[in-house]
């Protein structure tokens, strides 16, 4: 008993020596990505002057590509560029894996009033598209349950309307990705009317998230070809 007590004092003694420092730093990814999770938490977050989308559960290749795009200046957002400036591809891939595998419950869908004709318009765009205007169905690339396609196409459900509208607006203005060849989403977004953008954004925000990203083989070769720059080039490179 005396030995146990002695041992106990030894241990607490050691603990007290280090007691005022932040103890031992956990050797985990969660600890390493605190710089990310201050803005990107389990839910979408609106900061003082910016909007931070949830990144948990998004396809790994998509997250990896976006981080490299920020770092290398293809996707313009200085706060992300500064944070990632000196990170290797290997580490970014590990971070992408971490967030991709993070299973967090989705927030409840929004409840936005929509007119029946607006719903019809949105569903037509989402499931059929307008081939004559070179607009493919959203589901053709983002999966039939719209939860994305592995490895590099993001899901569309579980995002707030404001974010979807802003992203589509960004693509229409060419403001999401800069330089190089225009990407497929930019070309598609430019075809959409204001009403179409609004209808799609509302409709998507009203759905509850369920299911997982679809596998790559659901994509048609035509779309793979059209979007190769976004979804293939280094996409999910390991």
């Amino acid at each position: 008993m005396r030995f146990i007590l002695l041992l106990f004092f030894c241990i607490t003694g050691v603990a007290n020596v280090n007691g005022s420092t932040p103890a031992e730093v956990p050797d985990t990814m969660a600890e390493r990505v605190k710089a990310c999770t201050i803005c990107h938490s389990a839910e979408d977050k609106v900061g003082r002057d910016a909007y931070y989308p949830r990144i948990a559960g998004k396809p790994q290749g998509y997250l990896f590509n976006q981080m490299r795009n920020f770092r290398d200046g293809r996707r313009y957002y200085p706060p992300m560029a500064i944070l990632l400036e000196n990170m290797s591809d290997e580490y970014l891939l590990e971070i992408a894996q971490y967030f991709s595998s993070l299973q967090l419950p989705y927030p409840d869908p929004e409840r936005i009033q929509m007119q029946p004709e607006e719903i019809k318009l949105a569903e037509h765009l989402i499931y059929s598209g307008y081939p004559e205007r070179d607009i493919p169905a959203c589901s053709a690339c983002h999966g039939d349950v719209l939860m994305g396609v592995e490895p590099a196409i993001p899901g569309l459900i579980g995002l707030p309307r404001a974010y979807i509208t802003a992203q589509l607006g960004g693509w229409r203005n060419g403001g999401i990705m800069r330089g190089g060849k225009p990407d497929c989403m930019s070309a598609i977004a430019k075809q959409l009317t204001e009403d179409e953008v609004n209808a799609v954004a509302k409709w998507l925000a009203n759905q509850s998230a369920s299911g997982k990203p679809s596998s790559f083989d659901v994509l048609s070769s035509e779309l793979i070809d059209r979007c190769s720059r976004t979804i293939l080039e280094n996409g999910g490179a390991e």
Binding site: R32, K34, L83, S88
Partner: peptide, 26 residues
């Protein structure tokens, strides 16, 4: 304001980071 990560190097391939506070603090 900006936070940041130390460089990834052979001896420190998985650095810990400092969050940016520009978004949170005035």
């Amino acid at each position: 304001l900006n936070g940041g990560y130390p460089p990834t190097t052979a001896d420190n391939p998985r650095p810990y980071g400092m969050p940016p506070f520009q978004q949170i603090l005035r």
